[in-house]
Amino acid sequence: MGWIGETVDSIKSIKIRQLVTQVVTLGMIVTSALIIWKALMCVTGTESPVVVVLSGSMEPGFKRGDILFLHMTKEPIRAGEIVVFNVDGRDIPIVHRAIKVHERENTGEVDVLTKGDNNDIDDIGLYAEGQFWLHRHHIMGRAIGFLPYVGWVTIIMTEQPIIKYILIGALGLLVITSKD
């Protein structure tokens, strides 16, 4: 049985003090991940500092499974920036490029029109019915950095939840049975 046998033995041999230590360790891992995520939210100013590209509408620049790092500052939106926006009535944010910007003289409000680099037409058809422009509150952030392929991990886990549970289970077992 080898490895599995050892694992079972080590679970059997856990004492109460050890168990508490393991639980605390596990808690530390989970909370530090949470701390990092929340800290990133503070630093970048956006509620999702990292997004995974889900569609091919920005190909060949961004492919499905690539990840983008977002940043949101008070600086005004300008044409050419790749923005991530939410549309009323859609759950999933969209990553497209701003191609037209009209900024008001007195209020500084903006009208933004976006388009995917790989799409033939602009995004008016994607917006809510009767909506012709994006406004500031639709925009979650602008993309500043790029990392290829990494997002496949989350895509696979979302589409094949069984893999997620196996992975979480395996990691949990590893933490419980590790004896530093």
Binding site: G61, R78, A79, G80, V101, H102, R104, E105
Partner: peptide, 25 residues
Amino acid sequence: KQIFVFVAAEYETPKNSLNQVSLWD
């Protein structure tokens, strides 16, 4: 990987302090 290039017309109007209209990319 690639360069995205575009030409925009940029102007001011009484209503808008900035208008950027992409013409070609």
